[in-house]
Write a protein that binds this DNA or RNA. Structure first.
Lengths: 264, 264
DNA sequence: TATTATATTTCGAAA
DNA sequence: TTTCGAAGTATAATA
């Protein structure tokens, strides 16, 4: 988390169980202030408005507010949050006093709700979580200086071919990666043993029709760019293709080479 | 969460602060057993192996295990978890006794680590979180009978056009949705006032080159399917297009109509 | 089960 | 800032 190699704080977890809404509010505000990772579990309703809009009526859910501005609302199902906000938001927390008539006399009464609000601009988006009951509030602080090391990506597949071009086909010579065309950047641009231009599109996993369409766009664009009579080969490299994609490849005179990101 | 309308349990949150690894293990096991949503915060390393593979060295992170088999590892940054497992996994928890020499004499010693393991099949994937220190374990139970109501989707855009086809163009007549072609299903299939076939591709947001490629595939496929002399119009409907996509539309004789999912 | 396309996709890199 | 394509994408619908 906050990276302070020389002055690493001890990790800390502050927790309130069954707090009043006021106490929960204070704890959340303090957590946000301290740039902690704040979680709230309880009965809440959720409203979102922005690129789309949504309403979620009351239920018990787990909400996480991150110091980078991200917000996540999780039910007990699914890998994906039911509602969220990407990093860059401003988190706000307050108690709704239920002063519906505007008289102001309820200022010291028990609040009706604890409200978490996460605002974003560009695009303008608002996430509003209204808790009617809070079972737990926590604020977590710690350090995390390590980054994820991932392998088996498309980048690994590219490296594999650049280091051993014959994996694509005997005599293949890579000339450029990310070569620009009017239709976008080509993964690998090169030529075959006969000197013909070869456009290579890489995919780390089994591909469908979309990848064929992508390759086709690049081949079309290059043929126009290099002149009408240019003979450009298009090669899709992936572990495998679906039937429909295979048919599309054939229809458009494109080729396929089976290759995985790693050598296993 | 677990939907039991007539016998709704009270929501519950059981929390241990600064537990021993053994106590944490027991609490996690109990939470999984009870089909609760379990969270663990502490210092851990994470290994993943499956479609790809990854390693994440020690740091303070928040882990969530859901009763449907999903697992999430969150750092204090990003909307996305740094590691995860989709629903359908089998969660397992155990203490690593650090009995490296296999002598068995350390059976009652303090464990070296609390290990969370989430296994998936098809594809075979394994997520392994190893805690060397646990600051908090919680197990949450509750009820959640409400589903998200979302608007502003591509489906809304489709409904909008089906209810008022003139929004696309005067005299447009929708004939089918999801019409099958050799290249895939077309969003809306219809004909214009002159009786020409129209293929409509819908996007809820600003589109790039990929959407043009998609529309092109459908138009191509339908022209072949309906005979070589068939005159098929392709119309992309979205709030807006990027420059490159606009050029591609022109190159391939495709059209664009600006329309948002909702009438605002 | 495999395929296909959507998504409030998120994310990162490049122009 | 916008654009573009990758992602261990996840998710839902469909065959």
């Amino acid at each position: 988390m906050t990276s302070e190699p020389s002055t690493a704080r001890s990790p800390r977890a502050v927790t309130l169980e069954q707090p009043s809404l006021s106490a929960a509010c204070e704890a959340v505000a303090d957590g946000i202030e301290r740039e902690a990772l704040v979680t709230v579990f309880g009965r809440c309703s959720v409203d979102y408005e922005g690129r789309a809009s949504s309403v979620l009526e009351a239920g018990d859910r787990h909400v996480m507010l991150k110091p980078d501005g991200a917000a996540l609302v999780h039910t007990d199902e699914g890998q994906q949050p039911v509602n969220w906000q990407p990093p860059g938001c401003e988190h706000d927390v307050y108690c709704d006093d239920g002063d519906a008539d505007g008289s102001g006399v309820e200022a010291d009464a028990d609040p009706d709700a604890l409200v978490l609000e996460s605002l974003r601009s560009n695009p303008d988006e608002r996430l509003l979580v209204r808790f009617q009951r809070v079972l737990q509030v926590s604020a977590f602080s710690g350090t995390d200086e390590n980054e994820l090391a991932l392998s088996g990506t498309e980048e690994d597949l590219r490296q594999r071919i650049l280091e051993e071009p014959d994996l694509l086909e005997t005599g293949f010579t890579p000339l450029a990666t990310e070569r620009a065309t009017p239709a976008g950047a080509v993964d690998i641009y090169g030529e075959d043993s006969a000197g013909r231009t070869v456009v290579v599109e890489l995919k780390r996993r089994r591909v469908g029709p979309d990848a064929v369409g992508q390759l086709r766009r690049y081949v079309d664009a290059l043929e126009r760019d290099l002149h009408a009579d240019a003979d450009v080969r298009g090669v899709l490299v992936a572990p495998s293709v679906t039937d429909r994609a295979d048919r599309l490849l054939g229809d458009h005179g494109l080729e396929f080479v089976s290759l995985k990101p790693t050598g296993d």
